[in-house]
Structures are given as structure tokens and as C-alpha cells.
Design a binder for these strands. Structure first.
Lengths: 339, 339
DNA sequence: TCCGTACGCTTAACCGGAAAAGTTGGGAGT
DNA sequence: ACTCCCAACTTTTCCGGTTAAGCGTACGGA
């Protein structure tokens, strides 16, 4: 089946290409009668203007890009990205923008992808995830003047717009809660060390623990996978001054940690309290259900998408704060058993 | 920063646009010396040919589309799609194809998306998930002659190419395994009833149970969410002739079912054996770890992507079988406790 | 009556590449 | 010495839209 072009519509309507273009784009230059006739014909033969031709003559690509740099196994297991993407998509498809997705091996490759997208005019802007310290992607995007919204922060985003959530505040709230329960030896299993939010959380953790008189406040860094979470937990629980509470940087590691505790004969929450970051339905499916730091991830993605569309539309790049994760206490946290 | 065009390269090289085009595309028509000089200049100024211009003059869009029609919460929680996407992506990015992702509300909207993509020449082909019975998308894609690969089947794919996995065989293997353990009352918590693979599995289940003398072989349909899985499990375990084994159509429902069984005071696997379809790492993180029907989902996606690229390249549309899911017995299955 | 002008449309240029067709200059063949 | 051919480019056209500019026609005001 041949795709109809604007010329086909013009021929059937007995007018010129220009008239059809004006009619379809709501521009003045055609009478209302003619416009309706043209619209009817276009609808009848199923005409859609070619994106290529349209964007060639100056219009935008009507697409935004998202490059993800995480190993496939991490992506599959973590609900975070899929939820984020569905939120982004909800916002984009409402304005008939497309989302172009690309998995990359490392930040180097990601920068290359951005350069290519920019050169090809394939996207009007990009969403940047997994912000790192001194992130090399930031200066490149600034240099290219490619509209971008960083999902993460605060800080480290240069002149780029960003949407961020106050992880430090959420972590402080969690430590305060655990201290209030009576915990004095709290550990944390963190995510990938290069990620900025890991560092933000670590700093907040150290600061809060110091301020609140937590004796032992170790952070063990991991990679978000269940295996690594389990290994880190085993190490923590085997140590001399074993913690009475552990905060995990994602739910997968928390669930793995729970399994390890049970396998080592420790009662949760009697001997060990567990808090998970990211409150996916998984947290409620295990026994005991996990106390978790949750927030609306699709809304976060939608927020970022909305801001990106604004930046593409010419708005100044500003940094906006999204909802802070809130603690939902469930069965995995309780006062520590007296020694 | 202004994007370099082919004219910029031509000017700096002191040749015409045509020469640059020949040089960059490896066509004869320029000397090797000139070609190298042009390539060097192009690399130096970071030239990437505009996708729009290129695809306008007959070339392909170098992108494939994937429209997903599932509620956001299902997408987030199920590792399946993200793993599939990462597999698809791995294959596509190796050939510098882009993946255009779109979430849609219903099959109607999905068909509209296909028509638009086709008209806009935004994609060269599409991957179709969640095949239904008498799927309306199939005839539309055939009418449009839009290259497509259906992920699912067998059957119901009309003249479209497809990649499928033998779910019936996997289910039969599972039932045989449970019967061999001594189970005679086996239930199944299925997925969305409209999906073709749900029906294929149900038929295979009924047939296998009848053949193997399973007394009670109920299938309760659900929607892949933990809540619904839990509800279905509660109903099954409260019934008179309570099953001694349950097969779940995905891992999330299986984990929810496990929690329900434990909450109702039933020992797993003593009182109830559980088998999960889709073997994500989650299955190994719960206690007891779940016996699961697993297969390599990223490879499945890669396989589908490879076939789509072949169809786009002009290969005939054929139907190829991917790996069959294999059963990995773990702690959640055992012989039923004698009554 | 004549001119200005607003309307409704057509024409043509342009976007940035690909590729067909046209144009050189130099070397081989006779 | 003259033709022929081919390599190496240049020029031109085309893809399918958008949009500035042009061009009749009708209508209103002086």
C-alpha cells in the first residue's frame, strides 16, 4: 500500500500542496469551506504528514531520547526504570511526542549517542538518568545546546534543568525513625558508588547518625542486584558489632537481605530491622512486609517529561524538586531486642 | 551550537555536496585521497547526516517501534518487558537502529499508533506484543504492509512473521512433574484472559490434567498483579477440595500466592507446592525459593529484533520457535503431605 | 471611476541529504 | 595526432513537507 503524500490530498481536493498545508496546520490562507473539504479528504485517505519532510523544513522531530546505562540484568529486575518510563510516556504521548530509547554500555557511549542524536536531529531533547559526580555528559549536552532534563541531583547538573527528590531528607527521616525505635547500630547497603545520589545518601546517613548518636554507622556499597545485596548483608551480619537495623538502597537488595537474615536464623524484625528504598509492590509481598521509602515514580517521570517539553519550548532551565520519599512502616521494623 | 550539514563538510573540503555524500557512503566516485580527507573533516567537525533528510530521499527511518498496551503498574512490576526491551535494544543498537517506545491505553489506540507511524514513516517496522485471539492489529499491519514481528503465538499471526515459545510444552512438563511428585489436585492462576498465550496455556493445562488423571484442575484468571494473585490464591485455598499445588502465570502472582499461603498457615511446600512462570531473580529471593519456569527473555527479545530486521530487509515472513521455558525445581515444590 | 486591500489561492524556494546525469581532464589505444 | 574512455567531480533533480512571495478577484471607500 502506497503512503499518501500531501500531493495526493492536493490532487483529490483540486488545490495546491500549499493550500493543503495551510488547511492541515490551521494557518490562515484558505477559506473555511476549503479547509473542511481538505480535512475530510485527508482523513479519508489516511494521510499523515511525513515526519522526515516536516522536520527537514525546520520543524522539530517530536521525539525525546532516553539513554540508559545499566546492565540488562539490573534493568530487568528493578521496577524503577520501567515505572519511570511509563510516567514519561504518559506525558509524552499526550502531546504526541515519541520516546526513543537506547541502552548503552557506559557513559562514554552515552555521550556518543547524544552527539549522534543531536547531529541527526533525531530528538528534540533528552532525559538524563543516573547522574554521577563530575558527570561528563553534562558539559557535552551544554556544548551541544541539546535541551535536557537531568533526573537527579541536587547539584552537579551545571546549567541543565533538573528534577530531583530530596533523598537526604528521606534518609534523615528514616534514621530518626530507627533511632526513635531504639536502634544504635545501623548499617546501610548502598548502590553504585559513582552515582551522585549514592553519595548524597551516604553523606546524609553519616551526618544523621553522628548527630543522633548512632554508635556504628557503616555503609557498604553494592550494585543493586540481589546477589550483591545478599553478600553485603552476610558480611554485615557476620561482623562483630552486628547492626540491629539495615537500610537498603533499593527493594531488590532489601528482599535479598531479608532472605539472608532468615537463612542465618535472625528474626526480622526481632533481631534485625530492615528498611527498603523504593517501595514497589514486592515489598508487600514478602514476609514480613518491608518498611519502605516510597514515592510515585511514574509521577516523577511525568514531571521530568513535562519539564523537558518546557525546556524544548524555550523555558529557562530550572531545577525543580519533586516529592520527597516518605516512610511507610510495615512489619520489618521494630525496636531492637534488648541485648 | 550550529549543527554541521553536508554543505559545511563540502565547503571545508573544497568539494561539492555530492562528493561528500559519495565519500561518506562508501560509494565509488571519489578518489581514495579525497575520501580520506572528507572523512577526516567530517569526523573533526562532528558531522552526522540528518535522519530527516536522509530518510526523505528514500532511505529508511532506521528505527523500529514497540507499542505496549498494559497498565503502568503492571509494566513496572513485571521484569518481563524490561528484559525483553533490553534484549531488543542490544540487537538494534548493534546495527544502530533506534527503538521508539509508546505506551497505549488499548488495542484500538495501538492500531492508531501503527497507522500514524506508518504514515509518518517514523519506523521501518514494529514488534507486536501480547497477541490476542482474532487480534485486530494483525489485519491492519498486513494492510499497511508495515514490516512486523509478532512476539507470541503460535497461530493467530496471519501472514506476519512471529517468534514464539512453546508454552504448551512447558506447561505439560510442569504438570507431569507435579503429578510425578504425587499431586492430584492442581490449580492454576492464569493471566489476562484475552491474551492468546493465556488460552494456549489453559488448553494445555486442561488437556494434560485430563490425560494424567488430575482430579481437580481449576484455572482462575487474573491480571498479573500481586493483589489479584493474592485474591485468587485466597479463593483457591479456601475452597473445599483445596489444591495441593498451584501454577502461577507469572512470578509476581506466585510470590503473592506464597505470602497468602504462609498467612493462612499453610506450609510451602508441605501443604502447598508453588510453581512460577517467568524465572526472575525474585524467585530466588523469597523463602522458600520458587520452583520456576524460566527462559532467557533478553535473548527472546534479541531474537525477535533480529527477525524484524530481516523482514525489513526483505526476508519472507516466517514463524520461528524460540527456546522453550524449562523447569528449575527449587524449594517450593515437594510431594503433597499424605491426607 | 479608480485605487487600495483583504482574501484565497498558486508558485517557488528551501530544508539536507542521495543519486542520476552531466562535465571535465588525462591517459591509453590506434 | 586524434579519438575514446574512464576516473573524479560537479550539477541537478528529487524526496515531501513549510512558508514567503506573487497574483487574480471582489469589495469597499473616496
Amino acid at each position: 500500500m502506497k503512503r499518501p503524500t500531501i500531493a495526493d490530498v492536493a490532487r483529490r481536493a483540486g488545490v495546491s500542496k500549499g493550500a493543503v498545508s495551510y488547511a492541515l496546520n490551521g494557518q490562515p490562507g484558505v477559506s473555511e469551506t476549503t479547509r473542511q473539504r481538505i480535512l475530510a479528504i485527508a482523513a479519508e485517505i489516511g494521510f499523515n504528514p511525513s515526519r522526515a519532510a516536516r522536520s527537514l523544513s525546520g520543524a522539530s522531530a517530536d521525539a525525546v531520547g532516553l539513554a540508559l546505562c545499566r546492565p540488562a540484568r539490573t534493568l530487568g529486575i528493578e521496577p524503577f526504570f520501567m515505572e519511570l518510563i511509563s510516567g514519561v510516556e504518559a506525558e509524552l504521548s499526550a502531546r504526541s511526542y515519541a520516546l526513543t530509547l537506547q541502552m548503552v554500555a557506559d557513559p562514554e557511549a552515552e555521550v556518543a549517542v547524544y552527539r549522534r542524536w543531536w547531529g541527526e536531529r533525531r530528538v528534540d531533547g533528552v532525559l538524563v538518568c543516573d547522574l554521577r559526580t563530575d558527570d561528563r555528559r553534562v558539559p557535552v549536552l551544554e556544548e551541544l545546546c541539546l535541551p535536557a532534563v537531568v533526573i537527579g541531583g541536587p547539584g552537579g547538573t551545571g546549567g541543565l534543568a533538573s528534577v530531583w527528590s530530596d533523598d537526604a531528607a528521606a534518609l534523615v527521616e528514616t534514621v530518626e525513625y530507627l533511632v526513635a525505635l531504639g536502634h544504635r547500630r545501623i548499617a546501610r547497603v548502598g548502590g553504585l558508588p559513582d552515582l551522585l545520589h549514592t553519595q548524597i545518601r551516604t553523606e546524609a546517613f553519616v551526618e544523621a547518625c553522628a548527630r543522633l548518636g548512632v554508635v556504628d554507622a557503616a555503609t557498604v556499597l553494592s550494585d543493586y542486584t540481589g546477589e550483591e545485596g545478599a553478600r553485603a548483608t552476610r558480611r554485615l551480619l557476620s561482623s562483630a558489632g552486628r547492626p540491629t537495623a539495615v537500610i537498603y538502597d533499593n527493594d531488590v537488595m532489601a528482599i535479598a537481605g531479608l532472605a539472608v537474615a532468615q537463612e542465618m536464623g535472625l528474626a526480622v524484625p526481632g533481631d534485625l530491622s530492615i528498611v527498603a528504598w523504593d517501595d514497589s509492590p514486592l515489598c508487600q509481598l514478602v514476609h514480613p512486609p518491608l518498611t519502605a521509602l516510597g514515592r510515585d515514580i511514574p509521577a516523577y517521570g511525568a514531571h521530568a517529561a513535562r519539564q523537558l517539553l518546557a525546556v524544548i519550548g524555550g523555558s529557562p532551565a530550572d531545577s525543580v524538586r519533586d516529592e520527597t520519599a516518605h516512610l511507610t512502616p510495615r512489619g520489618s521494623t521494630a525496636p531492637p531486642r534488648p541485648a
